[in-house]
């Protein structure tokens, strides 16, 4: 598919665990705090390799986050990882004030994110944290698309200055990027060139975006541009604006609420710089529920099919004339819920 082949499946959390060990080998001031689920978020790799630089804090996310700040103020690069459901919300105040206002080297690994955590159900399916984290000054926010990108991103956030959050998942997902695939914080990567519609995706929806682009080409002869926006903050204004200008319509896709995450970030950029129609693929203002990961992806509309349908809709809206060029009465039908 456009030069991207399925290289197997692995959870992104393993990329995080691997990257953390590599980082620890390179820098001896990297320390890791555990929140009881170290074997789930793969900080267990680091714990085994560097036991003297690992501290178990127990089920106490607020404390762990703030202890990390103390470590960072003592010259350490402090990682804390738990499930996103608890590593972004339980400690929200700590993230805002102690981490971001102090602007220190605290790095949060948010694991078991999104709907694909599966049977654990709504309480454990964090679908909202990007919206919150994106509003925190000084915060860098990364959502890697596969194992290899998670590994690279983990090293990259360790090597940059300041607070960062990396979001990864529980279940095994397609691997398709390689060691030499470019990754840079703040830079969205154009994976597939095209100028009829731009699909901007993050996380495991990037693979679905590739499939959607392939189907659009095969079934309709439509050339879609596929963009992997692994960095949610700082969002890549240039790549997104270029996509708006050159494609004239956009679809965003993420394993997150449609409100405030990647879709929100893209909408802010596009509205300001070059307004074009945008369709949002994501969870539509509801909590998740128990089920198998793939079943839930289907039920909650997070597959290539929704991206495909949204692309057609975005193109149609562009071609009929966007709101800016028509009278309100003519465009009423274009208003619908996200």
């Amino acid at each position: 598919m456009f030069g991207y082949e399925l290289l197997g499946k692995k959870p992104t959390r393993h990329g995080f665990g691997k990257g953390l060990v590599e980082l620890g080998e390179k820098y001896d001031n990297v320390v890791v705090l555990g929140g009881d689920i170290t074997g789930s978020v793969m900080t267990s790799f680091f714990k085994e390799r560097f036991p003297e630089r690992f501290f178990s804090i127990g089920v106490a996310e607020q404390n762990a986050t703030t202890i990390a700040v103390g470590l960072a103020l003592s010259g350490k690069i402090a990682f804390f990882s738990s499930y996103s459901a608890f590593a972004a919300f339980r400690n929200a105040d700590q993230l805002r004030i102690s981490v971001c206002y102090n602007n220190v080297n605290v790095k949060i690994g948010g694991g078991h994110s999104g709907i694909t955590v599966g049977p654990d159900g709504a309480t454990h399916q964090s679908l909202e944290e990007l919206s919150f984290l994106r509003t925190l000054p000084n915060m860098t926010l990364i959502v890697p698309c596969d194992y290899e990108e998670a590994r690279k991103a983990t090293i990259a956030i360790g090597e940059m200055f300041g607070p960062a959050y990396i979001r990864f998942g529980r279940s095994a997902v397609p691997m398709f990027t390689k060691e030499d695939t470019p990754f840079e914080i703040g830079k969205a990567q154009v994976l597939v060139d095209g100028n009829e519609v731009a699909i901007i995706a993050a996380g495991l929806l990037v693979w679905e975006a590739l499939i959607a682009a392939e189907e659009l080409r095969k079934r309709k002869g439509i050339k879609a541009r596929v963009i992997n926006s692994a960095t949610i903050k700082p969002i890549d204004i240039k790549t997104i604006t270029d996509a708006a200008i050159e494609c004239g319509c956009i679809v965003t896709a993420e394993e997150h609420q449609v409100h405030g995450g990647l879709g929100g970030a893209v909408a802010e950029v596009v509205t300001k710089n070059f307004p074009v129609p945008i369709e949002f693929v994501g969870v539509k203002d509801s909590f998740g529920g128990s089920g198998e990961p793939e079943e839930l992806m289907e039920k909650f509309g997070l597959t290539w099919k929704e991206i495909y349908a949204s692309a057609l809709k975005a193109i149609e809206r562009r071609d009929k004339g966007f709101i800016g060029y028509r009278k309100i009465s003519q465009v009423e039908s274009y208003f619908d819920n996200l």
């Binding site: 599966g118 049977p119 654990d120 159900g121 709504a122 309480t123 454990h124 529920g289 128990s290 089920g291 198998e292 079943e295 839930l296 039920k299």
Partner: peptide
Amino acid sequence: YGSRLQGH
């Protein structure tokens, strides 16, 4: 999926 007996 859909059960009243959720994982939590």
